[in-house]
Design a protein around this nucleic acid. Structure first.
Length: 509
RNA sequence: GGCGACGUAGCCAAGUGGUAAGGCAAUGGUUUGCAAAACCAUGUACCACCGGUUCAAAUCCGGUCGUCGCCUCCA
């Protein structure tokens, strides 16, 4: 038997690697956070959720994780937006930092140990810049300071780009002040009226990439384990981070494993955006973004989580209203099963699950096998580059086994030990995927509440109709009862008659 | 054009060389006053295409086509 190993896809090597942290048992992780000039959209949420999964799993796996995620609060876009609104740039970014905090908290993300901001790390940034100038890797030009890509022979090792080919690219910003078109600003001289800090090269502010190097190294050291971010950051952002950091330090590696999440894509809204597949990346510049808060008004946060966890974090994820509705139904299904399991495990009967499994025949054995093996299968799947999709599939199989047993009147009475075992799977899932941890009743309530609100319906309206229907049913006036049910359905309310009275839920989509 | 990723049933989606999880949708059934939910049953997916390696490939290699991403701000 080999020791179970965690394998991680490393963008640097374009392959799955066995994960071994620099210091055994401890993981230092840096994730590129958001530039806070607006509300975050559900594409950003995917990045956040992807690394939330990574952090939670590493911890579940026994690693001690130091998680750093920054806010980029000094940036051209922030400055532009602030100027537009006549607001102080730092006040504006602070406002959106807090909005982001609210969004992420609502989604139940674990909090990083450190959440540094660029504006609080300018001295360190200047120190690194000075170091790079001193070592001949950077040069001042005008009020700016540029990093010289030609001074770093392995420039391009992350993205697979070659410096020579970047010259040819017409898309590289051409400025006379730069020695090479691909050189990038470490420090940008301030234009009149712009937010600025003093520096040996005059007043200015940090360039885009340097802040992550400064913050990552400040909290995690010159070499740390994992650096994460969206796939779009590979070039130039992460490539540049490597260059400037390894040159400043005089050694590599900067980050040992580079992890990148795939994009959320969305059906193109306009013809000129549309291509063969019809799906394009969600981004603010394409004007097709849906904010996290807008989605969370419609459905519980866990729905988004399930939707994301159903795909592997590196795959592109086509988002649509239909898929959101589908995920809502799927999550509902999981909670129906969980509720069954909770109800049937309420009263302990004191028998061992394996004994009960035998007693209850095939269905009992099936649930026992699925529930007992869940932890091992979970780890095997997650060890393979965080394969949450496989885990979700397993959860559905388990749910079906729970429901099957719960349908059997005789088995019901004896199922407690098995149901208890099955609920452990939900606990694991809740800990790591953040799915299935709520009390079913709470989940159903939240879903109802959000759907009603989205549709502008009052609970009282629904309840009045339900009462009316209950009366009609009591009178055995089926025509009347069905008519009321049809009215409710027209409103999006689905009614389910149970032994303990009618229950209802909101249709989604 | 360069670099990278991907191409699995109507849709979404796992798959760590040994003959394909799961979800949605659909059809039939059990259940129900009728429904809904749940359960059962039903899908031969030429695993994009063409070659190659192997006793054995969706899985490895090469080529072709297609899609997406990056090469400009971007999670």
């Amino acid at each position: 038997m080999s020791v179970p190993t965690l394998r991680v896809y490393n963008t640097l090597s374009r392959s799955l690697e066995v994960f071994e942290p620099q210091e055994p048992g401890k993981v230092r992780l840096y994730v590129c956070g958001m530039t806070t000039y607006d509300y975050c959209h559900i594409g950003h949420a995917r990045a956040m959720l992807s690394f939330d999964l990574v952090v939670r799993y590493l911890r579940w796996r026994g690693f001690e994780v130091t998680y750093v995620r920054n806010y980029t609060d000094v940036d051209d876009k922030i400055i532009d937006r602030a100027a537009e609104l006549g607001e102080d740039p730092l006040a504006l970014s602070d406002r959106f930092c807090r909005a982001l905090d609210d969004d992420l908290a609502a989604m139940g993300l674990v909090l990083p140990e450190v959440q540094p901001k660029v504006s609080q790390h300018v001295p360190h940034i200047l120190a690194i810049t000075q170091q790079l100038v001193d070592k001949g890797h950077a040069y001042a030009a005008g009020g700016d300071v540029y990093f010289s890509v030609q001074s770093f022979p392995s420039y391009g090792k992350l993205s697979g780009k070659k410096v020579d080919e970047l010259i040819a690219g017409e898309r590289v910003e051409v400025r006379d002040t730069k020695r090479h078109p691909a050189d990038f600003a470490l420090w940008k001289g301030a234009k009149p009226g712009e937010i600025a800090w003093e520096s040996p090269w005059g007043p200015g502010r940090p360039g885009w990439h340097i802040e992550c190097s400064a913050m990552a190294m400040e909290y995690l050291g010159e070499t740390f384990d994992i650096h994460g971010g969206g796939i779009d950051l590979v070039f130039p952002h992460h490539e540049n981070e490597i260059a400037q950091s390894e040159c400043a330090n005089g050694h590599g590696p900067y980050a040992r494993y580079w992890m990148h999440n795939g994009h959320l894509t969305i059906l193109a809204s306009s013809a000129e955006e549309a291509d063969e597949s019809g799906f394009v990346k969600m981004s603010k510049s394409l004007g097709n973004s849906l904010t996290i808060r807008a989605i969370m008004e419609q459905v519980p946060a866990e729905v988004l989580r399930l939707l994301y966890m159903e795909s592997h974090y590196r795959s592109p994820l086509p988002f649509s209203a239909e898929r959101l509705a589908e995920a809502t139904g799927s999550l509902d299904r999981l909670y129906v099963a969980k509720e069954q399991a909770e109800e049937l495990s309420a009263r302990p009967i004191g028998d061992k699950p394996e004994v009960i499994a035998k007693e209850l025949g095939d269905d009992g054995q099936a649930l026992y096998t699925l529930a007992k093996g869940f932890r091992a299968r979970f780890q095997a799947a997650m060890d393979q580059d965080f394969n949450s999709a496989q885990v979700v599939g397993d959860l559905f199989e388990l749910s079906r086994a729970i429901n099957r047993l719960a349908n059997d009147k005789r088995a019901k009475k004896r199922a407690e030990p098995l149901m208890r075992l099955a609920l452990e799977a939900f606990t694991i899932s809740a800990q790591v995927l953040g799915i299935g941890g709520a009390t079913p009743a709470d989940f159903f309530e939240e879903l109802k509440h959000k759907r009603l609100k989205a549709l502008g319906l009052a609970v009282e309206t629904v309840e009045a109709k339900l009462n009316e229907r209950a009366q009609a049913r009591a009178d055995k006036d089926w025509a009347r009862a069905d008519a009321v049910r049809a009215e409710l359905e027209a409103l999006g309310v689905l009614v389910m008659d149970t032994a303990t009275g009618a229950r209802w839920r909101m249709r989604v989509g």
